[in-house]
Amino acid sequence: MNSFGFEIQKDNTIEYDKNDLSLAAFVLRHEPSLYNCIQCGSCSGTCPASAISSYQFRKMQLLMRRGETKHLREDVAHCMLCGKCILVCPRGVNTRNVIRQIRIALNMN
């Protein structure tokens, strides 16, 4: 194998026009309160799973809405469903149903 001593830098641009947004559309259709998110991070700041893992609800759903769903399956598996996020969300997003809908969408895919 040829080794050039460097790796091609991964392009981290969100190719919005190329990304598949159908998963996000499914989740938003079944839990439209997600549209109300203002990215304040109350959910991920209080999340007990976020405190001890790479999981972050806010970031996960934002990436999903940009069509970046590569890590969605492994991310959403981290949730403990404790429900703290729902209690702190200032916009009344039904976060637990977002999780549920993502799981439903992934099993469908």
Binding site: S33, L81, C82, G83, I86, C89, G92, V93, N94, R96, N97, I99, R100
Partner: peptide
Amino acid sequence: IANAMLTSL
């Protein structure tokens, strides 16, 4: 916490 379907309202 058993109900994930109700809206906050």
